[in-house]
Design a protein around this nucleic acid. Sequence first.
DNA 1: CGGCTATATGCTTACTCTGAGCATAACCCC
DNA 2: GGGGTTATGCTCAGAGTAAGCATATAGCCG
Lengths: 339, 339
Amino acid sequence: MIQEESPRTKRRTATADHAPIREAGSHTASVLPAEPALARAVAVDLIAVLVAVTGGEPRVMTLDEGQALPSGPFELAHRSLQSGLRAWVEQQTRHPIGYVEQLYTFADKDRGSDAGQRTISISYLGLTRASSEREAGWRSWYDYFPWEDWRSGEPAIIAGRLAPLLRAWAEAGEGGTLRRDRWQRACVTFGLDGGTWNEELALQRYELLYEAGLVPEGARRAAAGGDRITARAMIADHRRILATGIARLRAKIKYRPVVFELMPPTFTLLQLQRCVEALAGRLVHKQNFRRLVEQQELVEETGETAPETVGRPAKLFRFRHAVLAEREAIGTKLPLVRS
Amino acid sequence: MIQEESPRTKRRTATADHAPIREAGSHTASVLPAEPALARAVAVDLIAVLVAVTGGEPRVMTLDEGQALPSGPFELAHRSLQSGLRAWVEQQTRHPIGYVEQLYTFADKDRGSDAGQRTISISYLGLTRASSEREAGWRSWYDYFPWEDWRSGEPAIIAGRLAPLLRAWAEAGEGGTLRRDRWQRACVTFGLDGGTWNEELALQRYELLYEAGLVPEGARRAAAGGDRITARAMIADHRRILATGIARLRAKIKYRPVVFELMPPTFTLLQLQRCVEALAGRLVHKQNFRRLVEQQELVEETGETAPETVGRPAKLFRFRHAVLAEREAIGTKLPLVRS
DNA sequence: CGGCTATATGCTTACTCTGAGCATAACCCC
DNA sequence: GGGGTTATGCTCAGAGTAAGCATATAGCCG
C-alpha cells in the first residue's frame, strides 16, 4: 500500500513543473538547510554476502544459526563504504578479500522498526579464499535455495513441490490474463513446461516465490501456512540479498575472471571447474571448459602436478594476474552441457 | 590517505576474531541502541542520470547550466528509494519513466561539506521517451565525454590531446613497473597502440583521466592547470556518476531490450538503429542489425510506412511488449562494424 | 521518360564460436 | 597386466555473426 506523500513533499514539487529536483546553486550542500529534520532518522547499514567455496559447495557467511547475513552500521571513521566493509570483513576472516562489489541499496519502509525511523541497507558481495579449517557460520547457499542446485539433475523439489504450488498460485489469480501471466512467469523463471533453466535468474525466482506467498518471509501475503517450501529462511530481507548476490556472481563469472578470487594460489583445472560448477549450480563440459580457460590464457602452468591424486596426475596452474591489466572485458564463459 | 579507525570501531571489532559484525539477536533493530550518535549525521541523496535520445544525440538531464545532475533528498514520505526517484522525475518530465535502475551508492568522505557530516548518494539511471519540444536542461552526453563518440571515426581529441597527455602521465610515474602499468591501462581503456575501442569502458576511461589529473574534478591531484581536456565538467562527482550511467546503459542494451524505452511508440528500424548508435557511440552494420532485431522478434510491423521519407519508404514497427514476459535474458546485440 | 540519388530490404559467404563426443595418456590398485 | 580413474588432445557439426553484394522503391531533375 502506497503511503500518501507528506504535505511538505507536495508543496516542494508541485510549485513548478519541470523544476529541478534541487535548486541550482545548492548542489554542494547535500542537506538543504530548510530540511534538517530529514537527516535525523536515517541509519545506514552495511550488509555482506561473503562467499567462499569449500568442499565443492558454495558457502555464505552467516550469523545467528544461519538466519542472518553479517551486517553492521556504517561509521564515520570509515573512509568509504567499501573500505568500511572491507576492513570489517578482513578482520573476520583473516584473509584479505580479493574482490568486493556493491550489490544494491535498499530502503523499503518495512525494513525499519518504528515509523519515523528509516534504515538504508547497502549490500555488498565479497569473495574470499576458502580457509582450510572449517569455520562456523559458513553455510551452503543451497540450504537456502535447494532448487538452485542442478548439478545432479533437476532438483526433486521443483517437480515435487514448487511446480504444483506455483500452478495453484497462478490459477488462484483473478482474471484469465493474470492467471496466464503468472503461469508464464513461473515457466520462464523456473524452466517449467519445456522451458530451459537459466541459473542467472536466482533473484527473480526468489521474488516470484515471495510474491506467491511461498516463503516464510512473505508470510503477510501468504494464504495458509502449510504451503511453504522446505528450505532454510532468513530474517527480514536477508535471503533476498543473498539471492541478489548469487545471481550477480553467476552472471559475473561468465565475463570476468572473478572465480580465481575463490581459488587457492595453485589449483588443477578440475578444481577450477568444480568451483565454477558449485557457483553456477550446473555441470560443465570438461574438455570445453579447459579449452576456454586455456585459450583465453587465464592461467599458466606451475610445472608441478597435483599431489594425492587418484587417476592420472593433473597439472597445477596459477592465475595469470597479468590478464587483469591486459584486458578489461573477458572472463570464464561456461560451456554448459545440455540437460 | 586512509584515516585512522576511530577508537570505538577498534574496540568493537578487535575484541574477538571472527566475531560477527553485528551480534546475534540484534539484527532486526537496525540501529543499535548503544550507538545512537551514528545516525545523526547521515543524509541521503538521490541522484538521477536521466537519459533521452533526441535529434540523434543521447541527452542527459542537467541543472545549473549543465553543471549538475538532478538530485534531491530522500524523504520519509517515499515508499522506497525507487518510488521516490520515480515520483520526482515523472513530475519533472511529465512522461512516465519506463525504466529505472539503481546505479551505485557513494559515500566518500570528501563528498560532504563539513566533517562530521556525511552524505550517502544513491544514483539511478532513468530512461524516458524524447519529448518533441526541445526542453531546457537536456545536453548531449558527448559534451562531457567528447572522446566517447566514435560515430564519425576516432575523435580527434584522442590522438590530438588525450594520448600525449596520458603518455606524459605514464612516463612521469616513478619506477619502470608503474610507468609500464600506467601506459598499459591507458592503451587498454582508450584503445591506443593498436588496441581496440570498447565503448563499455566509459567509466574506466573517466577514472583514468581523473587519476591522471586531467580533468578539473581531480584538480587537487593535477599538476599544472594547463593540461586539462576541453570538455564540459560537472560539480563534485556528478560527471563520474554520468559516466557510470553511460557505461551501464551501453552494456545493457546488448542483452536487454531497454532501447525501446527511449523510442516513440512506432519507429522505423533505421531510427532504432540510430538510437542504439547514439548510445553506443559507434556505428552498426545496418543489415545485420535488422536481422538481429527481427529474428529475435523484438518488434512487429504496424502495417504503415514512415512519412516524410527521402528514399524508399521504411516500414513502421512497434515494440512487442510480449517479449518482456516471454524471455528474461535477451536483448539487442550490436553487430559492430570493424573500425 | 531515363538517370541519379538515397534509403530499404533480401541474400550469400566466410569465419568464429561452441556444444558434444571420440580417443588416448598417465597414474593407481590388485 | 587388467581394470578403474582422471587428465588431456583432437575432431566435427551446427549456430552465430561480421561483412559485403544485390535488388527494390521512392523522390528529383534534366
